[in-house]
């Protein structure tokens, strides 16, 4: 192998090395948006079929989006169940449980009483549990107990 051929070969190898990570990521990108996994403790104190409500209280907002795994298309009319410990009681208090439907753009929001720390952390619980997609339970933690909103986004995979 002369010097020129060696350099060409090394260059080609280098090109392959720089290209290959991209090539490896391509199939994953083709697969698209990965579904949201259920969080630890997400289903605790779940009461299935929380009633659809306009609001559960005032001053605190639970917000989020619901999209389809893969293409990331927003899902409208999807029921999200929400519960949390607030100033009117704990997570098992029925008045702290309610459902909302997503809008056309896949967003949802529910006004509640102020969420307070429960079992050592201020957090909310959200569930998608209606069959068309795989069930997902989320348990977002508020960075501060003084926060007046918490967000949780769902990416749902077909059941």
């Amino acid at each position: 192998m002369n010097r020129r051929r060696f350099l060409v070969a090394a260059g080609a190898a280098g090109l392959v090395l720089t290209q290959s990570p991209l090539a490896l990521t391509l199939p994953a990108q083709a697969k698209g948006l990965a579904p949201t996994p259920t969080m630890r403790g997400g289903a605790n104190n779940y009461r299935p079929n929380a009633p659809l409500v306009d609001r559960l209280g005032s001053g605190f907002w639970v917000t989020g989006t619901v999209r389809r795994a893969g293409d990331g298309a927003p899902l409208s009319g999807v029921r999200i169940q929400i519960w949390a410990a607030t100033t009117i009681g704990g997570e098992r208090e029925p008045r702290n449980h309610g459902s909302v439907l997503t809008a056309a753009d896949g967003t949802f929001r529910l006004e509640t009483e102020q969420i307070v720390p429960n079992f050592g952390e201020p957090h909310a619980h959200l569930a998608y549990d209606d069959g068309a997609f795989k069930t997902v339970f989320l348990r977002p933690v508020m960075p501060s107990a003084r926060d007046t909103s918490v967000n949780a986004d769902f990416v749902l995979a077909p059941a």
Partner: peptide
């Protein structure tokens, strides 16, 4: 909250 307490005792709590 039985669920949260059992999670803690079984060391699978999120906290």
């Amino acid at each position: 909250s039985p669920a949260d307490t059992v999670d803690a005792l079984l060391l699978v709590s999120p906290t």
